[in-house]
Design a protein around this nucleic acid. Structure first.
Lengths: 219, 219, 219, 219
DNA sequence: AATGAATGAGAATTCATTCAT
DNA sequence: TATGAATGAATTCTCATTCAT
């Protein structure tokens, strides 16, 4: 399909695929994967039903391609974090800003993709391997490096990284569920979230807890 | 149907409904709402297809009933937080513990319900009104009370409450996406999450930030 | 079923059958045979679904029983015509009056029964044999007798008898199709129809046609 | 679908619709609307089940389309009666000939359509408005005109028109009920029926009734 | 390559009938 | 006998996919 060596052909093909994926993303987000029909997608894309099958082998492949596209933008945005020799506070702040500005403009893509990923083992595996694990590894590597340099307290790296990532993700899901507060104020999220995650809720008014005390709390 | 005044009948009916809902939850979680067929559910429940329609008007009504059941357990578990005159640290700790021990045993219920809720406007409205908004209101009320008593720094209540709730929710979604770390270590989550949210990432090794400094950060 | 020799039993059984048939007639007339469910009939009859099967072997048997009941009233009303040594004009008048006062009060029974009879070969056969043919035979016999006595012109007995019977039947069907004129004025029908059939449309203003003339017309 | 402006396409579409309607008419007539399945119709039409839904939105729409087709041929055949300045005898004769030659070749269409029309309020309304009322109006208008010109005795126009139309209709229904005499001799019907309706049963052998006499009869 | 009609497998739902209580 | 829950065959309709044009 994309094997044609003619570069103009390839451009045309890429454009057509994009056209279909854009339409599919919109329709999946509106109706969900199953209620969306190939006819719906074709209509929004302005082409005939059959044409979709020239570019994608099946409806599921369309969803997969959307997932891949999402994956690519994720990767692209993570690259710059890789270098990460920054100061911890700056790193966290930047990480959260990144995630949010990656995730929010694609909120509808997530709505299109997430429900099916949650429920389809094959897609889930794909997403885990290609998106989740790499994302967490970057975070874990950085946290471990920080800890070794004594710049981070002795926290559970695996779970903490997931908690940080999860807080962004959870806010996204809450918005997708229809929360209007987040929908209207998401530009303020990076600031609020960064402060929360760096300094915690009690930051100002409580004295920092003693080691023993915290252990007691946490047991 | 449930109008029968015969208490034994009612018991039988309730049991049958539970049997169907349990089966449906399992099947929805495995295959998703749409790929799950009435036949699948009936087979798992050990009854005939048609019997389901004696107890529920449609496949969607089955999903709705699962959502209501989830709602009820949520409400029940939130009741005791209502009184909330506890110490702040205890409250947060308890809140997170609550949420996690409510959500995790029901992880598969969420997997069954969440994808469809994300994508079905009617269900979404229902979930928002009956679960999300009440949950956030409890948190907001408590946070405001604390802040008025000077026990909490001047944070953005609306967004912070959502961030706290979101962190639990996000971790759930990450698990549902197949993350094995969370799946195997979720019992440690309350502790890690409480510490993170109360004390922040930098708690120990950094000195608490000065007011001015934090303001600068947070901008 | 009706084999019980206990006369009280038989009364009870007959009453229950009537109760079911009345309900079924009403429901069939409202919804048609197929859209009417056993549940509908049971509800109208004020009994449980299953009970119907104590008195009738199947839904079709219920329809059949309605047909039989209709048949019986037809027969009963025809008996007195059998003797028929009356004057021709009185006979026709009486015949039409009969038919109309038999058919109209049972209009809804016809609506219940006719559609299915039109389309179900078995019922059709039954109706033809038990109702139609006997009815026509009475008429044919009378007409032939009249003709032999020179009291009737040399008309086509078979077709004319059917035309007379058909005119009543056709008016019924037109009413069942929703014609409001007939519905509201059916009590005037016997008079109008008798005059029409006895004297024809031109009765007054034209001179009776000559034999030859009529033949020319009719050819 | 039928919006296509390509005239060849439209021809193809019209042919396919006809193919389906013909098959449906046959199957509905054989089994009745409800016992006839989409599969039956598709098999007779020689196409796949699903194809029917490319041309008709539902099984009921197929029936409706049959009704419309019947309606169109009715209208077409009535047009030439509209002009109606003919002699009364010729008019009646022509009217009956018309009706019979319209109705008989379509007997099976009536069998397909009538049962459902009798029982389905929506279809009934449609049939009444589009077929019955216009048909009666033509007749009533003509009869009134004749009466004003003194060519017709002072009969009840509304009921008489219905009685004339009903006699044709009733004969059709009697045939549909399985009467073999009418089935085999329907070509003789126009003649017999015209004579009956114009001259009445007693035409030859009785003297025309005196006014007073007829009044006495009729009431 | 693009089209869109045709296909037919598959799903939700209905409902006559059965049968344990 | 009466009940009404349970059954599962049968039906309508949808829609991903194919393929002739």
């Amino acid at each position: 399909m994309a094997d044609s060596r003619d570069p103009i052909q390839e451009l045309v093909i890429a454009a057509r695929r994009k056209q279909i994926l854009d339409a599919a993303t919109q329709v999946f987000a509106e109706k969900g994967f199953h209620r969306a029909t190939i006819k719906d997608i074709a209509r929004v894309a302005g082409i005939a039903d059959g044409t979709i099958y020239t570019y994608f082998a099946s409806k599921t492949e369309v969803l997969l391609a959307i997932l891949h596209r999402l994956n690519e933008s994720t990767e692209r945005s993570q690259q710059f974090l890789q270098g990460g020799e920054q100061d911890f506070r700056v790193f966290v702040q930047e990480y959260i800003r990144q995630r949010i500005s990656l995730v929010w403009p694609n909120a509808e893509v997530f709505r299109a993709v997430l429900p099916e990923v949650l429920v389809n083992a094959e897609l889930r595996e794909l997403y885990t391997q290609q998106v989740l694990i790499p994302t967490f590894e970057i975070g874990e590597r950085y946290f471990r490096a920080q800890r070794e340099q004594g710049k981070l307290r002795d926290l559970d790296v695996q779970l903490t990284v997931r908690a940080v990532a999860g807080s962004v993700f959870g806010l996204l899901v809450i918005q997708l569920l229809g929360d209007e507060v987040i929908a209207s104020r998401w530009e303020e999220l990076p600031e609020v979230l960064t402060t929360l995650l760096l300094d915690g809720l009690r930051a100002v008014h409580e004295a920092p807890v003693e080691e023993g005390e915290r252990d007691a709390d946490a047991h």
